[in-house]
Protein backbone atom coordinates (compact mmCIF):
# COMPACT_ATOMS: atom_id res chain seq x y z
CA UNK A 1 0.00 0.00 0.00
CA UNK A 2 1.49 3.33 -1.05
CA UNK A 3 2.12 5.72 1.85
CA UNK A 4 -0.04 3.72 4.21
CA UNK A 5 -0.50 4.74 7.82
CA UNK A 6 1.31 2.04 9.77
CA UNK A 7 -0.20 1.58 13.18
CA UNK A 8 0.60 -1.27 15.54
CA UNK A 9 1.60 -3.50 12.64
CA UNK A 10 -1.54 -2.76 10.61
CA UNK A 11 -1.78 -0.65 7.47
CA UNK A 12 -4.51 1.88 6.78
CA UNK A 13 -5.09 3.79 3.59
CA UNK A 14 -6.59 6.82 5.32
CA UNK A 15 -4.87 9.21 7.71
CA UNK A 16 -8.10 10.72 8.97
CA UNK A 17 -9.63 9.12 12.05
CA UNK A 18 -13.04 10.20 13.19
CA UNK A 19 -14.94 10.08 16.43
CA UNK A 20 -18.60 9.12 16.60
CA UNK A 21 -19.75 11.41 19.42
CA UNK A 22 -21.91 14.51 19.33
CA UNK A 23 -23.77 13.72 16.09
CA UNK A 24 -27.45 14.54 15.93
CA UNK A 25 -28.29 10.94 15.08
CA UNK A 26 -26.79 7.69 13.87
CA UNK A 27 -27.69 8.38 10.26
CA UNK A 28 -25.72 11.64 10.25
CA UNK A 29 -22.82 9.85 11.92
CA UNK A 30 -22.69 6.98 9.42
CA UNK A 31 -23.02 9.38 6.50
CA UNK A 32 -20.04 11.33 7.85
CA UNK A 33 -18.08 8.15 8.49
CA UNK A 34 -18.59 7.07 4.88
CA UNK A 35 -17.76 10.50 3.49
CA UNK A 36 -14.59 10.75 5.58
CA UNK A 37 -13.06 7.61 4.14
CA UNK A 38 -11.75 6.98 7.66
CA UNK A 39 -10.62 3.46 8.46
CA UNK A 40 -10.31 3.97 12.19
CA UNK A 41 -13.36 5.14 14.05
CA UNK A 42 -13.51 5.73 17.76
CA UNK A 43 -16.40 4.64 19.93
CA UNK A 44 -17.08 4.85 23.64
CA UNK A 45 -18.41 2.33 26.13
CA UNK A 46 -21.46 2.59 28.27
CA UNK A 47 -23.60 0.41 30.46
CA UNK A 48 -26.46 -1.00 28.55
CA UNK A 49 -29.68 0.93 29.09
CA UNK A 50 -33.17 -0.47 28.72
CA UNK A 51 -34.21 2.66 26.89
CA UNK A 52 -31.18 2.15 24.72
CA UNK A 53 -31.46 4.42 21.78
CA UNK A 54 -29.72 3.41 18.61
CA UNK A 55 -27.53 0.42 18.15
CA UNK A 56 -24.14 1.65 17.03
CA UNK A 57 -22.45 -1.58 16.13
CA UNK A 58 -24.78 -2.60 13.30
CA UNK A 59 -24.61 0.60 11.24
CA UNK A 60 -20.82 0.91 11.67
CA UNK A 61 -20.28 -2.74 10.78
CA UNK A 62 -22.17 -2.07 7.56
CA UNK A 63 -19.44 0.31 6.38
CA UNK A 64 -16.74 -1.78 4.74
CA UNK A 65 -13.14 -1.54 5.93
CA UNK A 66 -13.79 0.10 9.29
CA UNK A 67 -11.82 -0.75 12.39
CA UNK A 68 -13.46 0.21 15.65
CA UNK A 69 -11.27 1.85 18.25
CA UNK A 70 -12.95 1.84 21.64
CA UNK A 71 -11.85 4.62 23.94
CA UNK A 72 -11.61 4.60 27.70
CA UNK A 73 -13.55 7.79 28.15
CA UNK A 74 -15.07 8.00 31.59
CA UNK A 75 -12.10 6.33 33.23
CA UNK A 76 -10.43 8.50 35.84
CA UNK A 77 -7.62 6.17 36.85
CA UNK A 78 -5.29 3.68 35.16
CA UNK A 79 -7.19 0.77 36.73
CA UNK A 80 -10.47 1.97 35.29
CA UNK A 81 -8.93 2.59 31.89
CA UNK A 82 -7.41 -0.89 31.76
CA UNK A 83 -10.76 -2.42 32.63
CA UNK A 84 -12.51 -0.30 30.01
CA UNK A 85 -9.96 -1.35 27.41
CA UNK A 86 -10.54 -5.02 28.20
CA UNK A 87 -14.28 -4.56 27.83
CA UNK A 88 -13.79 -2.59 24.64
CA UNK A 89 -11.71 -5.35 23.11
CA UNK A 90 -14.50 -7.87 23.74
CA UNK A 91 -16.89 -5.59 21.88
CA UNK A 92 -14.81 -4.27 19.01
CA UNK A 93 -12.83 -7.34 18.10
CA UNK A 94 -9.91 -5.00 17.39
CA UNK A 95 -6.61 -4.73 19.27
CA UNK A 96 -6.80 -0.94 19.21
CA UNK A 97 -7.67 1.13 22.21
CA UNK A 98 -7.63 4.87 22.55
CA UNK A 99 -6.59 5.54 26.11
CA UNK A 100 -8.13 8.71 27.40
CA UNK A 101 -8.12 9.54 31.05
CA UNK A 102 -9.35 13.04 31.74
CA UNK A 103 -10.56 13.41 35.28
CA UNK A 104 -11.32 17.11 35.10
CA UNK A 105 -14.81 17.38 33.58
CA UNK A 106 -14.43 21.04 32.60
CA UNK A 107 -11.43 21.04 30.30
CA UNK A 108 -11.10 17.27 29.84
CA UNK A 109 -7.31 17.54 29.73
CA UNK A 110 -5.55 14.18 30.01
CA UNK A 111 -3.95 12.99 33.24
CA UNK A 112 -0.43 12.10 32.07
CA UNK A 113 0.47 9.99 35.10
CA UNK A 114 -2.55 7.71 35.02
CA UNK A 115 -2.36 7.60 31.21
CA UNK A 116 1.24 6.40 31.27
CA UNK A 117 0.47 3.67 33.77
CA UNK A 118 -2.56 2.46 31.81
CA UNK A 119 -0.62 2.42 28.54
CA UNK A 120 2.27 0.51 30.05
CA UNK A 121 -0.07 -2.23 31.25
CA UNK A 122 -2.16 -2.37 28.09
CA UNK A 123 0.86 -2.56 25.80
CA UNK A 124 2.05 -5.55 27.83
CA UNK A 125 -1.38 -7.12 27.32
CA UNK A 126 -0.88 -6.90 23.58
CA UNK A 127 -3.12 -3.95 22.82
CA UNK A 128 -2.29 -1.48 20.05
CA UNK A 129 -2.38 1.49 22.39
CA UNK A 130 -3.23 4.99 21.17
CA UNK A 131 -3.00 7.42 24.08
CA UNK A 132 -4.65 10.83 24.10
CA UNK A 133 -2.07 13.09 25.73
CA UNK A 134 -1.05 16.68 26.32
CA UNK A 135 1.40 17.84 23.63
CA UNK A 136 4.38 17.00 25.82
CA UNK A 137 7.45 15.71 23.95
CA UNK A 138 8.90 13.99 27.01
CA UNK A 139 5.68 12.20 27.88
CA UNK A 140 5.43 11.12 24.25
CA UNK A 141 8.86 9.48 24.44
CA UNK A 142 7.96 7.81 27.73
CA UNK A 143 4.84 6.37 26.10
CA UNK A 144 6.83 5.25 23.10
CA UNK A 145 9.20 3.44 25.47
CA UNK A 146 6.15 1.90 27.16
CA UNK A 147 5.18 0.29 23.86
CA UNK A 148 2.42 2.53 22.51
CA UNK A 149 1.56 2.13 18.82
CA UNK A 150 1.20 5.89 18.37
CA UNK A 151 0.74 9.02 20.44
CA UNK A 152 -2.22 11.36 20.14
CA UNK A 153 -1.31 14.81 21.41
CA UNK A 154 -4.00 17.44 21.57
CA UNK A 155 -4.10 20.49 19.33
CA UNK A 156 -6.23 22.26 21.91
CA UNK A 157 -8.87 21.19 24.44
CA UNK A 158 -11.47 18.65 23.31
CA UNK A 159 -14.36 20.31 21.52
CA UNK A 160 -12.82 23.77 21.88
CA UNK A 161 -12.27 24.26 18.16
CA UNK A 162 -9.22 26.38 18.92
CA UNK A 163 -6.98 24.63 16.45
CA UNK A 164 -3.26 23.93 16.81
CA UNK A 165 -2.56 25.95 19.95
CA UNK A 166 0.20 23.46 20.78
CA UNK A 167 2.00 23.81 17.43
CA UNK A 168 5.40 24.58 18.94
CA UNK A 169 5.34 21.56 21.25
CA UNK A 170 3.93 19.39 18.46
CA UNK A 171 6.91 20.31 16.32
CA UNK A 172 9.34 19.13 19.01
CA UNK A 173 7.28 16.04 19.64
CA UNK A 174 7.12 15.04 15.97
CA UNK A 175 10.79 15.78 15.42
CA UNK A 176 11.99 12.93 17.64
CA UNK A 177 9.06 10.53 17.62
CA UNK A 178 9.61 6.96 16.50
CA UNK A 179 5.88 6.17 16.47
CA UNK A 180 3.15 7.89 14.43
CA UNK A 181 1.90 11.17 15.88
CA UNK A 182 -1.82 11.71 15.46
CA UNK A 183 -3.23 15.05 16.49
CA UNK A 184 -6.40 14.56 18.44
CA UNK A 185 -8.77 17.19 19.73
CA UNK A 186 -9.25 20.87 19.18
CA UNK A 187 -9.36 21.07 15.40
CA UNK A 188 -12.09 23.23 13.92
CA UNK A 189 -11.22 23.79 10.26
CA UNK A 190 -9.84 21.47 7.60
CA UNK A 191 -6.97 23.94 7.07
CA UNK A 192 -5.79 23.09 10.60
CA UNK A 193 -5.78 19.40 9.74
CA UNK A 194 -3.73 20.19 6.63
CA UNK A 195 -1.32 22.24 8.74
CA UNK A 196 -0.89 19.35 11.17
CA UNK A 197 -0.11 17.00 8.30
CA UNK A 198 2.35 19.45 6.73
CA UNK A 199 4.09 19.64 10.07
CA UNK A 200 4.68 15.89 9.91
CA UNK A 201 1.78 14.37 11.80
CA UNK A 202 0.97 10.85 10.64
CA UNK A 203 -2.75 11.49 10.96
CA UNK A 204 -5.46 13.50 12.68
CA UNK A 205 -8.54 12.55 14.63
CA UNK A 206 -11.56 14.79 14.20
CA UNK A 207 -14.90 14.54 15.91
CA UNK A 208 -16.66 17.71 17.07
CA UNK A 209 -15.75 19.75 13.98
CA UNK A 210 -17.51 17.21 11.80
CA UNK A 211 -20.33 16.27 14.15
CA UNK A 212 -21.57 19.79 14.78
CA UNK A 213 -21.04 21.18 11.27
CA UNK A 214 -24.21 22.15 9.46
CA UNK A 215 -23.53 19.37 7.01
CA UNK A 216 -21.45 16.71 8.77
CA UNK A 217 -20.91 14.48 5.74
CA UNK A 218 -19.72 17.40 3.61
CA UNK A 219 -17.40 18.54 6.40
CA UNK A 220 -16.05 15.00 6.75
CA UNK A 221 -15.21 15.02 3.04
CA UNK A 222 -13.55 18.41 3.43
CA UNK A 223 -11.37 17.10 6.26
CA UNK A 224 -10.47 14.05 4.20
CA UNK A 225 -9.32 16.27 1.33
CA UNK A 226 -7.37 18.52 3.70
CA UNK A 227 -5.58 15.58 5.30
CA UNK A 228 -4.63 14.26 1.89
CA UNK A 229 -3.43 17.67 0.72
CA UNK A 230 -1.37 18.21 3.87
CA UNK A 231 0.19 14.78 3.63
CA UNK A 232 0.97 15.24 -0.06
CA UNK A 233 2.61 18.58 0.73
CA UNK A 234 4.67 17.00 3.48
CA UNK A 235 5.91 14.29 1.12
CA UNK A 236 6.53 16.79 -1.66
CA UNK A 237 8.87 18.73 0.63
CA UNK A 238 7.89 22.27 1.55
CA UNK A 239 10.13 25.09 0.47
CA UNK A 240 12.56 26.43 3.04
CA UNK A 241 11.72 29.56 4.96
CA UNK A 242 13.87 32.47 3.91
CA UNK A 243 16.59 33.35 6.38
CA UNK A 244 15.81 36.91 7.22
CA UNK A 245 18.78 37.71 9.40
CA UNK A 246 20.97 40.46 8.02
CA UNK A 247 24.13 40.98 10.06
CA UNK A 248 25.32 44.54 10.39
CA UNK A 249 28.93 43.67 9.70
CA UNK A 250 29.96 40.75 7.50
CA UNK A 251 30.40 37.51 9.46
CA UNK A 252 32.25 35.57 6.81
CA UNK A 253 34.98 38.02 5.84
CA UNK A 254 37.49 35.78 7.65
CA UNK A 255 37.00 33.29 4.84
CA UNK A 256 38.65 35.77 2.50
CA UNK A 257 35.81 35.72 0.02
CA UNK A 258 36.60 32.19 -1.10
CA UNK A 259 33.84 29.72 -1.72
CA UNK A 260 33.92 26.01 -2.20
Amino acid sequence: MKDALLLGGYEFDSRLMIGTGKFSDVAAMTAAARASGARLVTVALSRFHRAASDDLYQPLAAIPGLTLVPNTSGARTADEAVRAAMLGRELSGSPFVKVEIHPNPRHLLPDPIETHEACRRLAKEGFAVLPYIPADPVLAKRLEDAGCAAVMPLGSAIGSGRGLQTAEMLRLLIQDSLVPVIVDAGLRAPSEAAAAMEMGCAGVLVNSAIAVAKNPAAMAAAFAAAVQAGRAARLAGLMDCGESASPTSPLTSFLGGQEA
Partner: peptide, 10 residues
Protein backbone atom coordinates in the same frame (compact mmCIF):
# COMPACT_ATOMS: atom_id res chain seq x y z
CA UNK B 1 -22.91 -7.61 36.81
CA UNK B 2 -22.27 -4.80 34.38
CA UNK B 3 -23.38 -5.18 30.79
CA UNK B 4 -21.49 -2.77 28.62
CA UNK B 5 -22.00 -1.84 25.02
CA UNK B 6 -20.59 0.48 22.39
CA UNK B 7 -21.93 3.98 22.19
CA UNK B 8 -21.00 7.10 20.28
CA UNK B 9 -17.82 8.78 21.44
CA UNK B 10 -14.70 10.57 20.30
Amino acid sequence: IDLVTLVAGG
